[in-house]
């Protein structure tokens, strides 16, 4: 017998969760401020990020990972910023804050995030959607709510995992039962607190309910598709797949040929790649 979460409980969770979010490193804050001001040159941003060696190394590793499929190694932050644009760099900086150090507990989530990021970029390129880099970042962050629960509320996470095993359901259904909200709702709280751009928000908040994405349905649809394709590609026994609504197929005008093309592109990038190296 599960007690139903009252709105007050949910508000309390929101408060506690936002409190526990990791502090944003000074350098990242400074870079964000500059990015938000607009009209700032890539070399200035590059210099700011460059002051933190670990951070610059992380950003460069992400930029040179299979996400973007650049043919040549990108050696400098400035070059990376020119190629990817400031919004994408902002997203990458956030991902280093969210994931921090990839521990054993969140290893699986990290690998799934990387799969999804790569796949979102592939979908965008196959479908000729010009925001491929932004979509890649959305893919990387799409389950960040899960990461936060695992990192900061291990006792709640343990309950969620138990419910998931007992009911043989998806993470999302188990989260709803235990928390009263799910990781996509939590994504919304975080996106609001961190002032994410609207396009990024749609993918994070509506990747399990594309129907509700009113402003940028394409963003939500791409992430929904990238998510399920990543799951099917690495399917395990007993795994419960999320549902992809028919809207996704309609919004993206999918047909079997396009899907096959996307899967074979995924296979080239995901088949042997070990995300631990990133």
């Amino acid at each position: 017998m599960e007690k139903k979460q009252r709105p007050a409980d949910i508000l309390l969770l929101k408060e506690r969760l936002l409190e526990k979010l990791p502090a944003i490193p000074k350098v990242v804050q400074e870079a964000w401020k500059l990015i938000e001001k607009g009209n700032v040159s890539p070399s200035v941003i590059g210099e700011v990020i460059g002051r933190d060696m670990t951070l610059s190394a992380k950003v460069l590793r992400l930029v040179n990972s299979p996400f973007y499929g650049f043919p040549n190694r990108i050696g400098s932050l400035k070059h990376a910023i020119v190629l990817l644009g400031l919004d994408t760099i902002k997203g990458l900086l956030i991902s280093t804050v969210v994931f921090g150090k990839v521990t054993q507990e969140i290893k699986e989530l990290w690998a799934h995030a990387c799969d999804c990021a790569t796949t979102a970029g592939i979908i965008a390129r196959v479908l000729n959607i010009k925001e491929a880099d932004e979509l890649t970042v959305s893919g990387l962050l799409h389950d960040m709510g899960k990461v936060v629960i695992k990192n900061y509320f291990p006792e709640l996470d343990a309950k969620i995992q138990k419910v998931k095993r007992r009911n043989n359901c998806t993470d999302r259904e188990a989260e709803k039962e235990v928390l009263g909200v799910s990781h996509d709702d939590i994504n919304g709280w975080m996106a609001e607190k961190w002032h994410f751009p609207a396009t990024l928000k749609e993918g994070l908040i509506y990747h399990h309910q594309v129907k509700k994405a009113i402003k940028y349905p394409i963003f939500a649809a791409v992430i929904s598709l990238a998510d399920i394709l990543s799951h099917i590609y690495r399917l395990k026994f007993g795994q419960c797949l999320p549902i992809v609504e028919d809207e996704v197929c309609h919004i993206l005008k999918l047909n079997p040929k396009i899907i096959t093309k996307i899967i074979s592109e995924m296979d080239k990038s995901l088949y042997t790649f070990d995300w631990d190296e990133i």
């Binding site: 399917l235 026994f237 419960c240 549902i243 992809v244 028919d246 999918l254 079997p256 899907i259 899967i263």
Partner: peptide, 24 residues
């Protein structure tokens, strides 16, 4: 694996994904 994971998921979109992966 695929048959098991897709059982009961008969919507148009899910079926298309399933067939594409089986072929792949």
């Amino acid at each position: 694996l695929i048959e098991e994971a897709f059982s009961g998921k008969d919507s148009e979109c899910m079926q298309m994904l399933k067939e594409a992966f089986l072929d792949f």
